[in-house]
Amino acid sequence: MNLLALETATEACSVALIHGDEVIARSEIAPRRHAELVLPMADALLAEAGLGRHALHAIGVGRGPGAFTGVRLGISLAQGMALALDVPVITVSSLAALALEAPEDDACILAVIDARMGEIYAASYRRDDNGGLVALDEERVCTAEALLLPAAAAWHVVGTGWATYADVLRGRLSGELRSANGACYPQARHVAELAAREFAAGRVCAPEQALPVYLRDKVALTLVEQGKA
């Protein structure tokens, strides 16, 4: 199977390619430069693997949540490429992809992205026996103070939400904090891993049915809310 994956929901712009049993990837922390970087990254990976675009069997993409423009860009590019190549799209939660940045053990995982405007995007998971993920709750956007988590003996926390709200989030955990990394972002290599599982199970969609997940309807503060009016 040849699967190209895109992840542009946060400051990290990344692309990954599954080519047979090999995974190759490119990633760069590049706020506001995703549109100029993502297609050249994809072309570089295809060239490295010696593949043309028409050799691809599917396109995987991080569907969000994350920055509105980044999520929209990733979905739009995935749709466009899939339509041109007549292949399906697999959308993957950007929070689930982020969760795979955590160490591999029996601890639960809190994936948390700084959503700005005093809020976070969050979801919690545990690893299953096959190296995949089981969701323990629903993705949501809320304040760090309002975050409710399931009871667990131990936790790993990954994502920029930890960098911003570590003190508050530490108090939301019911068990041992085994590790925490606030410098993690969702990565295309993990989108590819999760998308490959979905592809193998036949859970794909037509390009026009690939939808973003924003969680937040409101994407900008008014001047009054910013205190500038």
Rank of each mutant, 00 (worst) to 15 (best):
45 L>Q: 00
45 L>T: 04
46 L>S: 00
48 E>M: 04
48 E>Q: 11
48 E>W: 06
50 G>F: 01
51 L>K: 07
53 R>E: 09
55 A>P: 01
56 L>Y: 07
56 L>H: 07
56 L>V: 06
57 H>A: 14
57 H>Y: 06
58 A>F: 13
58 A>P: 12
59 I>S: 09
59 I>D: 07
60 G>F: 01
61 V>T: 13
62 G>F: 05
63 R>F: 01
64 G>C: 05
65 P>I: 00
65 P>T: 01
65 P>L: 02
66 G>R: 09
66 G>D: 08
69 T>D: 08
71 V>G: 11
71 V>P: 10
72 R>D: 02
72 R>Y: 05
73 L>Q: 05
74 G>W: 04
74 G>P: 06
75 I>P: 06
76 S>K: 01
77 L>N: 00
81 M>V: 00
81 M>L: 15
82 A>Q: 03
82 A>S: 05
83 L>H: 13
83 L>W: 13
84 A>P: 04
87 V>G: 04
87 V>Y: 07
87 V>I: 13
90 I>M: 08
91 T>D: 03
91 T>P: 00
93 S>I: 04
95 L>I: 03
95 L>S: 05
96 A>D: 08
98 L>K: 10
98 L>A: 11
99 A>N: 07
100 L>M: 15
100 L>A: 08
102 A>N: 03
103 P>D: 03
103 P>G: 00
104 E>R: 15
104 E>N: 15
106 D>F: 03
109 I>F: 03
109 I>R: 05
110 L>E: 00
110 L>P: 00
112 V>R: 09
113 I>K: 01
113 I>N: 00
114 D>W: 04
115 A>Q: 05
116 R>F: 12
116 R>N: 13
118 G>S: 15
118 G>C: 14
119 E>I: 10
120 I>H: 02
120 I>P: 03
121 Y>H: 11
122 A>F: 14
123 A>L: 04
124 S>E: 06
125 Y>R: 10
127 R>E: 12
128 D>R: 06
131 G>Y: 12
131 G>A: 10
132 G>D: 13
134 V>N: 12
135 A>T: 06
135 A>I: 04
137 D>P: 06
140 R>L: 08
141 V>L: 12
141 V>K: 13
142 C>L: 08
143 T>D: 05
145 E>S: 08
148 L>I: 15
149 L>D: 12
151 A>T: 13
152 A>G: 11
156 H>A: 10
158 V>R: 05
158 V>I: 06
160 T>Y: 07
160 T>P: 04
161 G>C: 10
161 G>T: 12
162 W>V: 05
163 A>K: 06
165 Y>N: 14
167 D>R: 08
167 D>G: 07
168 V>C: 10
169 L>D: 10
169 L>C: 09
170 R>Y: 09
172 R>Q: 07
173 L>C: 02
175 G>T: 10
176 E>Y: 01
179 S>D: 02
179 S>M: 03
181 N>E: 11
182 G>S: 10
182 G>K: 10
184 C>P: 04
184 C>M: 14
187 Q>R: 15
192 A>W: 09
192 A>G: 11
193 E>P: 11
